[in-house]
Amino acid sequence: MSEKTIQFCYYESPIGPLLLIGSDRCLHAVSFPLDGQAIPAESLWRENLASFDEVRRELDAYFDGKLERFTVPYLLKGSSFQLSVWRMLCTIPYGSVMSYGEVARRVGKPKGAQAVGMANHANPLPIIIPCHRVIGADGSMVGFAGGLEIKRWLLAHEGISPDQINHPGQMGFDF
């Protein structure tokens, strides 16, 4: 298959079937299930499980609690602001959370919390680029493209309890 051919496979995860999209060399997107069902692949894409061996190994390790940072090659396309936010998200440690406002401050846009939320929503690689680790300044669980139930599950998987989310200032938080 050529580099330009979009390939896909489904990955059965504890949060439902994830659609992995990419090329021979890198991951382009991860799509959460919708209402528990896998997102359908586009008709021109080609299913190729082997192209996603490394991604599937790392996802297995993450869901087994043995991987805290992904190293798979990926391709990101977005505005310069989105790219800066996504790079920042990759620095939030496993098992920690950060507020939208703090992410905005760290990317040089101290009043850009809402723009950070929009960049998070556009993140093509959730889990790999951990947008689930971003919460409201008051510790509230807000916004997530995969739905708040999946966000809660991912945070709990990383050792962040719902009680901690609603009470900022406890261990694991970086405001």
Rank of each mutant, 00 (worst) to 15 (best):
S43N: 10
L27R: 06
I15K: 10
V85E: 03
D24V: 00
G117R: 06
V55M: 14
V72G: 09
G139R: 03
G101R: 03
T91P: 00
K77D: 08
F144H: 15
P126N: 08
R25N: 06
E47C: 04
I6Y: 08
L154H: 03
S23L: 07
D64C: 14
D138M: 07
E58D: 04
G65A: 02
C90E: 15
P124W: 06
I128R: 03
S51F: 09
D35G: 08
V55G: 03
L18C: 06
E68P: 09
I92P: 03
L19S: 01
S51M: 00
L125I: 13
C131P: 03
K66A: 13
I39P: 04
G147E: 09
I39M: 02
A61K: 07
L59E: 02
F52T: 00
F144S: 08
S23C: 15
V85R: 01
E158D: 13
P17S: 12
A38F: 03
S43L: 12
L67M: 02
S23N: 15
K109C: 06
D24Y: 12
G159H: 08
A137R: 15
G65C: 00
G172E: 02
D64T: 12
E102Q: 14
I150C: 07
L18S: 00
F32Q: 07
V142N: 14
R25C: 11
C131R: 09
F8K: 03
Q114I: 00
C131M: 11
D60A: 08
V142P: 01
F52N: 02
P130T: 05
G108L: 06
I165G: 02
L125Y: 07
A38D: 00
L89A: 11
